[in-house]
């Protein structure tokens, strides 16, 4: 494998569990993915499927107790972020791996000028002096497209609009030119018109800085627009992992199919939007078999007995479903056809 082909971030069998009085909640239960330089990976799934917990686990920001990384590795440039010391981890955060949060309204300190908040990261990681850091902060504000950055830098968050705050967040995250950017629903809280601008900005900065981006979202539109590969999460697992165009053209997993079906379609005359029947199993009480089985239109006895593995298909698409294994016999398919 050549150097350029080597992923910068590799997540292997990551498990994040929450130990509460009600029992153990397996919010993230053994996920694998890798991210290359310049690549954008989308992590999609509905609320509570573990996508945000995954991103927080990478930076080791899980509230503990009750949360704990119960297993697996997060390999970043040869270091396992799960095991390094807190001091080392602090040097990674914001410097080599950064994160943008969902809610620009609450993700900035309300009593500090925004320039100061950007400069803080620079002073922490790059040993910059107060003045140099401030100048760089103003530059960053300019880079993220904030007009009259010298003036804006001195303002406090409440004086900025939501879109501008998200730009400030991006400036903060990118101030130290990290190699990986985790964007946790970066556009969910924004107006549709602003959403496109922010996505465009992230893409543009990614091209300039050559970083890998993990885009966490529940919005398939965002995925289609920005991501190279997509990992679909369901109840703490990745159930399908494929290049974006393949997922949209030919979704394999019944859950992914359901997700795409539930999007309104512009060319079809639809009376009602499709939904996926049933609900996500409780994280405290996961079924032994496939976690989607009880909602799956193709369910078979084996689906309830044993959990399928994430298996790579011939065309590189990885899917966690019995339908794509040898065990799924012709007989089963026939039975289904009869039904």
């Amino acid at each position: 494998m050549t150097e350029s082909n080597k992923p910068i971030l590799e997540v292997k069998g990551l498990k994040t569990h929450f130990f509460t009085k009600r029992g153990v909640s397996k919010a993230v239960d053994g996920i694998d993915f890798s991210l290359h330089k310049g690549e954008t990976l989308g992590i999609v799934g509905e609320s509570g499927c573990g996508k945000s917990i995954t991103s927080l686990s990478i930076l080791r920001l899980i509230p503990s107790p009750p949360g704990k990384i119960a297993g697996g590795q997060v390999l970043f440039k040869g270091k396992d972020l799960v095991t390094i010391s807190e001091d080392e981890m602090r040097r990674v955060r914001g410097n080599e791996i950064s994160m943008i949060f969902q809610e620009p309204m609450t993700s900035l300190n309300p009593v500090l000028p925004v320039g100061e908040q950007i400069a803080e990261a620079l002073r922490m990681h790059q040993n910059m002096g107060r003045k140099a850091a401030w100048e760089r902060a103003v530059e960053m504000l300019k880079l993220v497209g904030i007009p009259s950055p010298e003036k804006r830098a001195k303002q406090e968050p409440f004086q900025l609009s939501g879109g501008m705050r998200q730009r400030v967040m991006i400036a903060m995250a990118l101030a130290c030119t990290p190699e990986v950017l985790i964007a946790d629903e970066p556009t969910t809280a924004l107006d549709v018109t602003i959403q496109a601008q922010i996505l465009e900005l992230i893409k543009d900065l990614q091209n300039r800085l050559g970083m890998g981006v993990i885009m966490i979202t529940h919005d398939l539109g965002v995925v289609a627009e920005t991501c190279d590969t997509v990992a679909v999460m369901y109840a703490g697992n990745i159930i399908e992992h494929a290049p974006t165009e393949k997922i949209f053209a030919n979704p394999r997993h019944p859950y992914t199919q359901g997700l795409l079906d539930s999007l309104p379609k512009i060319h079809e005359d639809q009376e009602e939007l499709q939904t996926i029947e049933g609900s996500v199993p409780s994280p405290y009480n996961m079924p032994a078999g496939c976690r989607f089985a009880s909602r799956c239109p193709h369910q078979q006895p084996i689906c309830h007995e044993q959990q399928p593995e994430l298996i790579e298909q011939n065309d590189g698409v990885k899917v966690r479903c019995w339908m794509y294994t040898d065990l799924w016999t012709v007989k089963m398919v026939k039975e289904e056809a009869v039904k």
């Binding site: 955060r93 609450t106 993700s107 908040q117 922490m124 990681h125 903060m172 995250a173």
Partner: peptide
């Protein structure tokens, strides 16, 4: 518990800061 504390931590701030 507020999000900006997470945000600051994600930038690598130490406890004292």
């Amino acid at each position: 518990r507020l999000e900006y504390i997470d945000a600051v931590r994600s930038l690598g701030a130490d406890d004292l800061t």
